[in-house]
Amino acid sequence: MSAARQCLDAAMHHEQRWHRLNTRVVHMTPWFEVREDSVVRPDAVEDIYHHVVSPGSVTVVAVNDDDHVAVTRQWIYTHEERQWRLPAGSIDKVDRDPRAAAERELAEETGARAEQWEQLGRVNGADSFTNHVDHVFLATAVTMGLANREGAEADLVVHWLPFDEALNLVACGRIRHAGSVYGLLSTGLRRNTERR
């Protein structure tokens, strides 16, 4: 092994990082838990770190044969306003994986089913606060059926907008949901690349 490689390995071995000494759940709900960790920070000081542990969520860019994308509008309790966003929701215990959750959420909220699915990526929305990951999917070859919304989604309205119009909602700041922004932008960038 070269001397340079030995130095690199030694540096990586001694890199400063967080170390968890122990953890305890201080609050639990059906959707997430709050943990209090005893940690050693990168500066070698012992501290307490509070964070939210979540099973994650999914967001779906559902595009039909007319190049319209499903965009929902509903009251978002934590932001106290009606918001535009793509079909999205939590990964439930009944879901075998994120894609199954995406299929379920799309069908529940819009009534749509898709034959073709592709994972676009994953979004970390609030790294210092939670481990939450939003898995973002592109769904195509869409057929329509009946929605099956929960009571809390009684005010949800689905709009099938031309893709460019939905993308414009991101550009003008009317869609702020991280997974929705990521999904629409990544799909738009991909389309631009394919046109070249």
Rank of each mutant, 00 (worst) to 15 (best):
S2K: 07
S2T: 14
R5I: 14
Q6S: 12
Q6K: 15
C7Y: 11
L8M: 12
A10T: 13
A10W: 10
H13A: 15
H13Q: 14
H14W: 08
Q16F: 05
Q16N: 11
Q16T: 11
R17N: 07
W18V: 11
H19R: 13
H19D: 08
H19K: 10
R20N: 05
R20H: 02
R20F: 11
N22F: 08
T23D: 10
R24N: 07
H27Y: 13
H27R: 14
M28G: 04
T29Y: 06
W31E: 13
F32M: 11
E33M: 13
E33I: 05
D37G: 10
D37T: 10
V39F: 05
D43M: 01
D43V: 03
D43H: 03
D47C: 02
D47W: 09
I48C: 07
H50Y: 15
H50E: 10
V52G: 00
V53M: 08
S54N: 13
S54V: 00
P55N: 08
G56D: 06
V58K: 01
T59F: 06
D67H: 13
H68Q: 14
T72E: 07
T72K: 00
E81P: 00
Q83V: 10
Q83N: 00
W84I: 04
W84G: 02
P87D: 02
A88T: 13
D95K: 08
R96L: 14
D97F: 05
A100H: 07
A102T: 05
R104E: 01
A107R: 13
E109K: 15
E109I: 12
R113I: 07
E118D: 09
R122G: 07
N124A: 12
N124V: 15
A126I: 12
F129L: 15
F129C: 05
T130H: 04
H132K: 10
H132E: 13
V136K: 02
L138E: 07
A139Q: 02
M144S: 08
A147N: 04
A152D: 05
E153H: 09
D155N: 01
H159M: 05
E165H: 09
V170A: 04
V170W: 03
A171D: 15
G173E: 09
R176E: 11
G179W: 07
V181E: 05
L184G: 06
L185A: 07
S186H: 12
T187I: 10
L189R: 13
L189K: 09
R196S: 08
R196V: 12
